[in-house]
Structures are given as structure tokens and as C-alpha cells.
Design a protein around this nucleic acid. Structure first.
Lengths: 157, 157
DNA sequence: CCAATAACGGATAATCTTATCCGTTTTAGA
DNA sequence: TCTAAAACGGATAAGATTATCCGTTATTGG
């Protein structure tokens, strides 16, 4: 509905990175990052390379290499990830796809949809990787608890 | 961002239908509907056939045939068009794509995004073809006015 | 009843997205 | 300095989406 496949991989991959990277260096290899998850190794590697080029990630080759955030997790927003992968201002088209619709030549739907679009943008702009990592940790703790209590099959999937 | 290409074509095509069909019968042929627009004839025909199968449109073959709304324009919502083409409940996944996330096993992001998703759904559920047709008419009148005043090139696309 | 016409529907093509593969380059540790 | 290891990057494959084509079927007006 909102993100493409690669963008979702990126978000999940980055959240995993923040959660599980070596605390001292913040660094992690793709192979380590991927295991325990269902993220596709090669494809995610390509995506991370793109994120490195766009300046969200840093990387180094060779032994001891890997990826790490180019700046603190609380300074990387979902919007930045989104735009790095799907291009800038990719959320500004007319909702209903009428032709040549923008703020200067609006159709009435444009104005009706505007607050919704704005709300979404606010979410994307204020939610950071730090938040996502916290969410991921919370979710994992939650699942672990459920397994212990033995209710994990009740409403799985 | 929200709709696929075919869904946008459908929305535009249906809005055109409502605006320009024969007022008495509400009926219109694909060929007439398409001209004057940039809508792709054959592809839109396929989409309209799908909408006919799903019960939003009625159609008849042969001479004097064409398409017409199966019920009044104000009773057809964007959501119905959307679901006819992209499947039911297609807007309920976890925003950030964490695995197995739903209302029973939420991640925190799930709850944060919920009101935004709800807002969007409300819009899709309350906006009807009648509204879209009105928007289309307003937009066309607006453009016509601009052409007459001679300012149409100032901020065109 | 015939011919023109319009939607129908299956086949196919084109394009874009998603995914994988593999040789290359870089780096560090032994 | 050599070797193993890791990201890099180009090529390619696989699949899904988007789009077109064309013969078929149904309908109606003449």
C-alpha cells in the first residue's frame, strides 16, 4: 500500500542492524544481519549498497568490513529511507490520478486528500530508525513471552 | 503511492463516464469515453470488463452497446473500485513490513500508523463517483477559464 | 435475416520490478 | 606478502505488471 518491496526490506534490514550490530562499532556484516530473518541475502546487499551510495549507510570492504549507520539512528527517518530508494517527493501526486494535478492546478480531490497526505508525511518524517528498532525489540520480546506462555499458535499469522 | 496504474485508469474512466455519458441512458461506448483523454483504449476496455464482472458496471455488446453504472454514482465509492481491482482488504498490512503483524500481534508502529490508515480508509469509503465527477467538472472548468484568460502556460506541469 | 458494431476473452508482447549470480576490488589478519 | 573475507557492480534471470492484438460472440438497426 505504501512502500515497495525493496523499501520494506531496507526498513526491516536497518531495524535489524540497529538492534543487533556490535554495540561498540555499530558495524555488522550482511550475512550476520540476514540470518534468523527471512530477508533475502543478495537482494538486501544490493539495497544496502544503494543506501550506502545515498549516504544513509557507510560501508567497508574486506575482512572486518560491513555496514554501519552514517549518522545516529534517531536522525534517520523513514522518509529518508523511502526517498533514497523510491526517489524524492514521490508522495505528491494527485490521489485519484487526474492529469496535471498539483498545488497550483488542484482538482478538488487534491485539497480533500491533502490533510491525509500531510498526516502520512508527518509520520514518515518523524519516525526514525531508533523508533523502529524499539518497535522491533518490543515485538520480539512479545513473541518470546507468548512462546513461553504457550499461546503462540492461537492467533499466529 | 496509493493506487496501481489500472486502478487510476478505472477511477478516471469512471469519472469521465459519469460526466459525459448520455444523460438519459447513462450509457457510453469505450471509444467515445476514451477520446479527448489520454486513457489507453484497449487497456481501459479490459479494466472496464473486470469492473463489469465485479458488478460495478453493466454492459451490453453489439450495436448500441456500451457501459453504464450498475448503481447511482453516489453509491459507488473509491474503496469499491479499489477492491474490485486490487482485491479485498488490501490496505491492512503492517506499514513498515515487519513480519506477521496485525491487530492481534501488533508491533508498536502498527498502533502508531493505525489512525493514519483509518483516515485514508474513511476517505476511500466516503468519496464516491459523484464526488469525483464533480471534481473532474470543476477542474475542466478551471482549465478552460485559464485558457481564456491566457495564463495556462504559467504553471503548466 | 444480414451486416455493422461493440464488448468479450484468450494469446501475446513489452516493460518494469524483483531477485540472483559471479567475477572484481578492497581490506585486514596471519 | 599472501590469503581469506567482505562489499561492489555488472550481467542476467525470473516474475509480475502493464499493455496490445485479434478473432469470437452478442446485439441491434436496416
Amino acid at each position: 500500500m505504501i512502500f515497495t518491496n525493496p523499501t520494506e526490506y531496507a526498513i526491516r534490514g536497518l531495524a535489524e542492524l540497529v538492534c543487533r550490530a556490535d554495540p561498540a562499532s555499530g558495524r555488522m556484516m550482511i550475512d550476520d544481519l540476514v540470518d534468523g530473518t527471512s530477508l533475502p541475502r543478495d537482494f538486501l546487499a544490493k539495497i544496502f549498497q544503494k543506501l550506502a551510495k545515498s549516504g544513509l549507510l557507510s560501508s567497508s570492504k574486506g575482512r572486518g568490513g560491513g555496514f554501519w549507520l552514517a549518522r545516529p539512528a534517531h536522525e534517520i527517518t523513514i522518509m529518508q529511507i523511502y526517498e533514497a530508494l523510491e526517489g524524492p517527493a514521490c508522495s505528491d501526486r494527485c490521489v485519484v490520478g487526474l492529469e496535471k494535478c498539483n498545488d497550483h492546478m488542484p482538482c478538488p480531490q487534491h485539497d480533500l486528500y491533502k490533510p491525509i497526505r500531510q498526516r502520512l508525511k508527518d509520520y514518515l518524517n518523524t519516525t526514525t530508525l531508533a523508533d523502529l528498532a524499539a518497535s522491533l525489540r518490543a515485538k520480539q520480546a512479545w513473541q518470546k513471552m507468548r512462546v513461553m506462555v504457550g499461546t503462540e499458535r492461537i492467533d499466529a499469522q
